[in-house]
Computed example of a mutant assay.
Amino acid sequence: MADSQQMFKAGECRGTAQAKTDEWIDSAKNTASTARDKTANAAQCTQESAQHGKEQTAGFLQQTGEQVMNMAHGAMDSMKNTLGVGDNNSHIYKK
């Protein structure tokens, strides 16, 4: 009878160990799935943030380019006026 009782206990321990192992495996799978989801979300946010930054940079560069071009035109007009070849002063030298 001791042998059957020992076998029963051994089987019970094995069943309990198998159940615990299955719980741990499921827990590890859930943790991995959650980590994968969080990583995918972080990657999506990073991509959206990069796109937004790219758009802002493009707008900034365009605005800066327009400002530089306007300043260059202003400087050119000022120089023409100083030399007397600008549109505003051309009527003075016509005689």
Rank of each mutant, 00 (worst) to 15 (best):
C45L: 12
Q51L: 15
A17K: 06
E23L: 07
E66P: 00
A32M: 04
Q56N: 14
F60E: 15
E55Y: 09
N41C: 08
F8K: 07
A10K: 05
T82L: 13
H91E: 02
S90F: 11
K38H: 10
W24L: 08
T21I: 05
K9T: 07
G15C: 04
S33A: 13
Q18Y: 06
A17R: 04
T46C: 06
G11W: 00
A50H: 07
A58Y: 06
K20R: 07
Q5M: 15
A17D: 06
M76C: 07
S78T: 14
Q5L: 10
Q62A: 14
A19I: 04
T64P: 02
G74W: 03
A2F: 09
A35G: 01
Q62D: 13
S49I: 02
I25R: 05
M71K: 13
Q51I: 06
R14E: 05
D87T: 12
I92R: 11
D22E: 13
T16K: 12
T31V: 06
G84D: 05
G65E: 06
N41E: 15
V68I: 15
A40R: 14
M69A: 13
A72L: 13
S49N: 09
A40Q: 15
Q6F: 10
Q62I: 11
Q63V: 02
M79T: 10
K9P: 00
N41G: 09
Q47F: 11
R36I: 08
A10T: 05
G53V: 01
S4A: 15
R14G: 02
D77G: 02
D3Y: 15
G74M: 03
N41K: 15
